[in-house]
Design a protein around this nucleic acid. Sequence first.
DNA 1: TTGCCCGTGGTCCCTGACAT
DNA 2: ATGTCAGGGACCACGGGCAA
Length: 305
Amino acid sequence: MSARRKDDPQFDFFIPMVHDIPLKDQRETMERPFFSLQKRKRLKPIDYRSPDGEVWVKVEAVPAYGMATIWDADILIWAASALNRLKQQGVNDLPRTLRTTAYDLLRAIKRDTGGKGYQELRAALDRLASTTIFTSLRAKRGRDRRFSWIDEWDIEVDPITEQPRALRITLSNWIYEGVTQEKQLLTMHPDYFSLTGGLERALYRIARKHAGDQKKGWLCRFSVLKDKTGSDSEPKEFARMMRKIALRDELPEYSMTIVKAADGSPAAHFIRRDAGERTAISDAIIEFDQLYADTIAKKQGDLLL
DNA sequence: TTGCCCGTGGTCCCTGACAT
DNA sequence: ATGTCAGGGACCACGGGCAA
């Protein structure tokens, strides 16, 4: 695809409903605090440094909009999944601007499609566009990198009916690079979108990244975990929420138990639930995948030609 | 059925007071 | 210092309704 064509909105890729294809998210953003876990507006910046001091992440919010939340990140997961799907279909030059309808996007990320859903979507896009991230991850030596999640978004309005027709989202370079490199992506469990708690979501992402398939699972002290999630609560409150989540035991794929670390401090142990369930789920995803591949490919073809 | 809107009740992260 | 508890504020899920 030529540069001219890439810049021409007429040739934006239209992304059809993607809620039945495998969900992909970026490895790097899964194990570090990049998003607010609160549903209320967060302005206090995130300032994270890994225990070895090698990796740091700073996230800053604009007062008018607040920091992008872990629910807003669903839009990025949707984008990653859609681009990954295009790549698998053999599209070489993946678009940085995605075109869809607000309704399809809301459905895909399992949100309400009422009036408030649209308002919330706009607010989410504003937060994604205004939140700035400053990180050592993927920064070239000696060069700092600052970016937002998305560069811009707009809504195409039908000139006659004045009804919104399409939603266009342009990903930032950092996100685009991460999403288009396959090794950067991990498959998320479909139930992730149904998790209502911000902390639960953060825990699942971390477990998915760190515990993975490890037979022994993965152990992490509360103090480290709190930093990794980016939770803004006091340690004792964080501990209380952790106990509550462990008791409910509703994280997709992983079970979490509270244990004592070697030094006696509280820690969480994550381990995959039984292997049989895992096989059943991945089989189901593959079946869905094949079922929808044809219809999506057809729709894609119709809209591109 | 699809696309949209609204009111209500419930959930959740966090705060702050109090207890251990 | 750490745990318990009640409640605030935001907002999400749900069900009902409407129009095409």
